[in-house]
Write a protein that binds this DNA or RNA. Sequence first.
DNA 1: TGACATACCTTGTTGTTCGAGGTATCATAT
DNA 2: ATATGATACCTCGAACAACAAGGTATGTCA
Lengths: 114, 114
Amino acid sequence: MKLDKGLMAGSSTLLVLTLLESGDMYGYQMIEELARRSNDVFQMQEGTLYPILHALEKGKYLTAYQQEAPSGRMRKYYRLTRRGRELLADKKAEWDRFRQGVGDVLSGGANALA
Amino acid sequence: MKLDKGLMAGSSTLLVLTLLESGDMYGYQMIEELARRSNDVFQMQEGTLYPILHALEKGKYLTAYQQEAPSGRMRKYYRLTRRGRELLADKKAEWDRFRQGVGDVLSGGANALA
DNA sequence: TGACATACCTTGTTGTTCGAGGTATCATAT
DNA sequence: ATATGATACCTCGAACAACAAGGTATGTCA
């Protein structure tokens, strides 16, 4: 069962930044790691991920460097900058507000007593 | 502080259907009720809501009827159909999967033991 | 009379995802 | 040798969704 495309919108940046919080990663690896951590709920497409990475790098939220894999292949690793960590904190706070908001509506209201 | 536009994407239909679960409502009222229940986290725009209502009505998820308000004004009320309740159940399940997925990624993985 | 809230609607812009395609390397099997 | 599949990067165009901004009209209150 695939997730609605709309739901992904807005959360992709949060997810990418979160992955990089636990260490530098390269794009292809992020897609795999995202699927692993989420039990395959998230199957991010390359056409979604790479533009996000490029935009975040352009905005100085990430820096990139090349590194050779044991296989000899070149990989492009991304690292969170200080700015990136700040953005991540904001995105996390926003996610919490959003999640809480949806929960409140589903339960009938923030202060639903009945 | 405004919510990112992207986060709203995909959840608007769920929110609208949820409101109608507790009784028939008219559009303008939904916007107010959504703000009330969510402590102003959700401030849905009319340009977002009305197209959603029309699409749901077209898809037979809702039926609409006119009713005069005490003030004498005409209001257009919407009512959930059986189909609509089924869609709502699906959307709720999808939201749960999504929320769980994000939570899993944020916490380092679904089965994070460390 | 004018201003504001109510109540409905549509159009165009913008932002985001995805599908589909392209390039190239490496490992494995034939 | 060669073909296939996984790895690894990238871009473009279509589709979709929310929003801003505009419009129409009625009721209320100063």
